[in-house]
Write a protein that binds this DNA or RNA. Structure first.
Lengths: 235, 235
DNA sequence: TTGCGATTCAAACAAGCGTTTGATACACTT
DNA sequence: AAGTGTATCAAACGCTTGTTTGAATCGCAA
């Protein structure tokens, strides 16, 4: 039993578990399990996957634990519960890294192109980080840490794109028009994630591999730049 | 008890319930309840409201029945269960009506403008039909009748917008570019619904009344037309 | 009035949920 | 070798869910 109130563990980074549980001791048979890391890390990885697929309400801790091959009680031992696990599974690094990597490109149009392509890649990359997809899922099902997410990631991201738009259309654009331009950019990108179930049914043979993502990013960039020029010319 | 297997009632349209239940007999005190119609219709109305707010998984039949002021068992009596109630609550008429009303406008740009404004209105209108919002909710949480919805509404809608795009950019556009243009249009519109929780947090003082919806529709139209012209000129 | 089918009711049911429990197994210190 | 704290385990708890049940109530017809 955990001593006192063991919730919200104070663990040093990289600390390893003490033993392998009997359900996981495939290694005594020299069988390599494809599960890596300790229980806590496996839980985080499984949580990102399951939460991003089914949403917070749709995901069950039993499925997460089954996927992580850990005991059911591990969620409440290593975290405080399902909700804390969700918050811990969130990660703002990929999107912040994208913002930073694009920021010191030269030329407004290049920065816009790079941002859209990077953003689309994070949204669509199936084998990539589900952390971004997990966050996008939260945007639609606003129950938990949305206030925090907006403050930490979304607002800086919108401000960043706002600056990109200003660099293209000039600083004399009205706040309302600026906001709508930013929304048009995000809307075009997010559509591919939010509506991907519909897209799959409309075009069953269409797969968003690296090439298709690149073509899509090129389209959105050209489409957007033309729209922005239109706004700039007719204020 | 219902005779045999009473599910999937065969009811004539407009048939009324036989008596007012004791929980609802406010009329003996001459108190006018704001609930109108029979049990089945009240259930449908409440289901549209609750489902569109919380999604299929998030909504509970208890909340729906409480909202409809109806006994809990009514869902399984008048329908076969929660899932059948959801399917029955879906309504394709508003979007099909929009398509038809726009179809016989003259001029491609006018049709596009009218469609975007009408679509945005159905998406955002808070006091309006929650049927469209209920359907849009289903697009993100693809569990139930999505195949049917895509076939009945989404596919015709995309085909309709595809024709609008062809009318603007010409028929020689490639299928891939055509598809991406349609996605850009829908993406810009749907953003305001899918991300409205984020928008509310980013701009707390911004409310999408009739005037703001109109301005937004105007922006999307101009933005899109410029993008389409760009596509048409650089094939 | 009596009987009957349709409808509504309160109550309970079975299943699934997140969470808790107490025992057990391990690594490490003394 | 014994003790201590950490981690995992199977099992159960309390609660909510969708659904079912059998009785009660209504309009209506004989």
């Amino acid at each position: 039993m955990p001593p006192g109130k063991p919730k919200l563990q104070q663990r040093a980074a990289g600390e390893t578990g003490r033993f392998m549980p009997s359900a996981n001791n495939l290694n005594i048979l020299n069988i390599q399990s494809d599960i890596s890391g300790n229980t806590r890390d496996r839980l985080l990885a499984a949580a990102r996957k399951v939460f991003s697929e089914h949403g917070f309400q749709g995901a069950t801790v039993r499925e997460i634990c089954r996927h992580a091959e850990v005991n059911l009680a591990a969620v409440n031992y290593h975290f405080s519960g399902k909700e804390a696990l969700f918050v811990a599974a969130l990660s703002f690094e990929p999107l912040n890294a994208l913002r930073n990597s694009v920021a010191h490109e030269s030329g407004a149009k290049v920065r816009l192109q790079r941002f859209i392509e990077g953003f689309l890649t994070q949204l669509m990359n199936e084998n990539g980080t589900p952390q971004c997809q997990l966050m996008m899922r939260e945007l639609i099902e606003p129950t938990l840490a949305l206030d925090n997410i907006v403050q930490e990631v979304i607002a800086p991201l919108h401000e960043f794109v706002s600056q990109l738009v200003r660099d293209v259309v000039g600083a004399k654009v009205t706040p309302g028009e600026l906001r709508r331009c930013v929304f048009s950019i995000f809307g075009q990108c997010l559509f591919y994630r939010h509506s991907h179930a519909v897209i799959r049914r409309l075009h069953p043979n269409l797969h968003y591999d690296k090439k298709e993502i690149s073509a899509t990013a090129h389209h959105i960039t050209e489409f957007t730049l033309a729209g922005l020029r239109q706004i700039a010319e007719n204020p």
